[in-house]
Design a binder for these strands. Structure first.
Length: 479
RNA sequence: GCUCCCAUCGUCUAGUCUGGUCUAGGACACCGCCUUUUCACGGCGGUAACAGGGGUUCGAAUCCCCUUGGGAGUACCA
């Protein structure tokens, strides 16, 4: 039987970094095994689920490069893929359980429920211990009350047995018999509850593996019980570690930028995000750290998962982004970085050739597009630096000599129609200062730098000067 | 409270299953040196970890137990 795994988000918000990682693992696992990756929308929470969130998630997933084989809008043999469109299936199956005596209607009101929970707590017992009041109500009587339209939920009649299963990343896990009690499977509004519809769908959609985050580990006991009630074969489970923030708590909005779309908006490279996320809980067999997804699919397997939670660190993500950016071809590099610059940035008015040379040079100095503009200042800024160092260089008696000379030289070149000061021209200036003005060492180079760029430090002048537009040069020299 | 999970540098991790080759390896960050007119890049190097305690064993980061610590769950959220 071929592998089938699903990513099943709830459209109650934007795609989260943690969700993206889970989706990535599912995608990779399916691909590594020649199986199918399915997208299923878990929108049974009517109040919180929004179609716009679903649409945004689809977009973000696509941006991540995680394509799926079956899902809403895409089709497949096991649809519909939106739980809100499958309520009849759940309803029928819930009724089946009731008729088999494996589930029962419960008429507890919210107030009663709360009271019972408080009572259990005050007695230091599990909160759910008294929720089974209607467990043994005569089925005929229950049926009558349901038919009369009395508000009710459907509870699962827990056989109260110890549950053991083998998790693909955690090994054997055992839960005690009294862990969950008679839990709700159908809400009073007729919608199923997560643990119920999740099982139905994984079963009916013939999932072979369920990969999800550790927060769901405890849910597995309920789900296993339901599979058993239907006599259905449960899929294999793999619970991967949680992603945590600085405070070691589950990563959430309050930890800052945790939505995928924020990284998209900040122009991170999706391949860098995926690469980094993948390594947060999974390790490459040869400890390689920079790669594209398709380079590791054949290597991807469940045995290399870490069991402990991983801390999400944006600084390291930036490093990954830098590495991936440097792997881009010149053409891709330009089309990646160019749109990140503001529309009126002087970069855009330069030639294609110039842009390529420029970015090939500056890519070494940055990890993210945000860092680019400040580096570009050395080519475009006409505001001289006011740092201590600049003041010192300006105070040297050789500096005015250099400035006077290069000013006349640049003027001559400009008058001749040169658009840039070429490397050759720059070298000639340097030699002139050296031979005729007898200036050398740091007095020469720092003086030249200050005169030509207005700054005391920066990248190699031989690269920077030929890239500086003549108009900028003239402005700096007050020509 | 109860249940479950987890535990190697500040962080992500390799090594744990199949004890010895681990005076614990790599990466991010940090620091230093080299190169460079400067900064960056690069190269080289450095600081830094097996939570604690008991076992088992000739030998334990690796196996067992306890303690401690952290996390998750305990909903008519998923």
């Amino acid at each position: 039987m071929s592998v089938r795994v699903r990513f099943a988000p709830s459209p109650t918000g934007l795609l989260h970094i943690g969700g993206a990682r889970t989706a990535l693992y599912c995608h990779l696992f399916a691909k590594a095994n020649g199986g199918s990756f399915i997208l299923r929308i878990e929108d049974t929470d009517l109040e919180r689920s929004k179609r716009e969130y679903e649409e945004a998630m689809v977009e973000d997933l696509k941006w991540c490069g995680l394509e799926w084989h079956e899902g809403p809008g895409k089709g497949g043999d096991f649809g519909p893929y939106r739980q809100s469109e499958r309520t009849e299936i759940y309803k029928g199956l819930a009724e089946q359980l009731v008729s088999e005596g494996k589930a029962y209607p419960c008429f507890l009101t919210n107030d009663e429920l709360e009271e019972l929970t408080e009572k259990a707590k005050s007695e230091n017992k599990a909160p759910h211990i008294y929720h089974d009041k209607y467990r043994d109500l005569d089925p005929a009587e229950a049926q009558k009350r349901v038919a009369a339209g009395e508000t009710h939920v459907i509870r699962f009649k827990n056989p109260n047995k110890k549950v053991t299963f083998t998790d693909l990343v955690r090994g054997e896990v055992t839960f005690p018999e009294d862990m969950v009690g008679d839990f709700v499977i159908m809400r009073s509004n007729g919608m199923p509850v997560y643990n119920f519809c999740c099982v139905i769908d994984d079963w009916k959609m013939e999932m072979t593996h369920v990969m999800r985050a550790e927060e769901h580990l405890n849910n597995t006991v309920r789900q296993l019980l339901i599979y058993e009630a239907f006599g259905a074969k449960a899929p294999e489970f793999a619970h991967c570690s949680l992603l945590v923030g600085e405070d070691r708590q589950k990563l959430s909005k309050r930890h800052g930028a945790t939505s995928v779309v924020q990284y998209k908006d900040q122009h991170f490279l999706p391949q860098a995000l995926m690469n980094y996320l993948c390594l947060l809980g999974w390790s490459h067999p040869e400890e390689k750290d920079i790669w594209d997804l398709d380079e590791i699919v054949s290597l991807f397997d469940l045995t290399r998962f870490s069991k402990s939670p991983a801390l999400y660190d944006i600084e390291k993500l930036k490093h990954f982004n830098g590495e991936h950016m440097r792997r881009l071809s010149t053409k891709d590099l330009v089309s990646y970085l160019k749109p990140t610059l503001s529309e009126n940035h002087p970069f855009h008015s330069q030639s294609e050739q110039w842009q390529e040379t420029c970015l090939e040079f500056f890519k070494e100095k940055i990890n993210t597009p945000q860092e680019l503009p400040e580096h570009l200042d050395v080519l475009f800024s006409t505001t001289p630096s006011e740092s201590e160092e600049s003041k010192e260089v300006a105070s040297w008696e050789t500096t005015p000599q250099i400035k006077e000379y290069v000013t006349s030289e640049v003027k001559r070149l400009a008058d001749e129609g040169a658009e840039f000061v070429s490397v050759e021209a720059f070298n000639e200036m340097t030699n002139h200062c050296k031979k005729e003005l007898k200036i050398k060492g740091k007095f020469l180079f720092k003086g030249l730098r200050l005169a030509l760029t207005g700054m005391a430090e920066g990248p190699d002048l031989k690269v920077v000067i030929p890239l500086t537009p003549m108009a900028v040069m003239k402005s700096r020299l007050a020509l």
